[in-house]
Amino acid sequence: MRYSSVYLLCVPALVLVGLLLAAPLYSTVAQTFGGEVALFGRYGAFFENAFNRDVFFRTLKIALITTVIAAALGYPTAYFISQAGPKWRSLLILCAVLPLLTSSVVRSFSWIVILGRKGSVNTLLMKLHVIDAPLRLLFNEISVVIGLTYLFLPLMILSLVGVMENIEDDLMDAATSLGAPRIKAFFAVIVPLSLPGLVVGAVLVFTGSLTSFTTPQLLGGDGSTVLSTLIFRQAMVLFDWDGAATIATMMVVLTLSVITAINMAARRLNPAA
């Protein structure tokens, strides 16, 4: 194919992304530097406010905890799936994909049914006479972390399975036949080779949690505002467009930095990959 026709076929997609996406984003970033304020003045003002500072660090903390839990739950699960026979493997993948394709509103809502005042957990504990009055389990940071872990665990599992499936069984067999205990062979063979999958999974879960809106909106309360729900409040309730644009810019920078940082760390840990 001639180069000119290749570029020509790319023009519609370039217009869509390069113009229809880039222009509004540029405009949002530009707004935070316009007006009668010092360069980066709006960012300084954001961090001078204690509430905003809390929101910023809470968002990072929630995303980090969610990523760690998703890795702890997902890693053994993905290993199990990759070792299972073809029938079990497709069934287990199917069961991980179903929640992934279900609406995030439904998935967050399910935790309202479980953790709500008349939810399953409270009903069970009252029946067992562990508690007399329903506990307040919703609308705090823990319920947000639970909801986000639920939301993103399938992504972690699928990223890991994709990589683990391609690790040759012979490598494990070689290690064990040469005398390595199975557990040692696992850490010497499977763990380093599955690192790229873990990195992809961690990036997906971390950036997903960092920017997720539905879950903190439904499962979080006033004390667990995060950047995405703050942006919504600034723009749609307070009509503070400068403030919302400032948070939007920070979220873009934060997302890009996280992706770059995790990828760089992964390259240093495993130069082969």
Partner: peptide, 8 residues
């Protein structure tokens, strides 16, 4: 991020 896109 979705909220950034929506807002912009």
């Amino acid at each position: 991020p979705g909220v950034v896109l929506g807002f912009s």
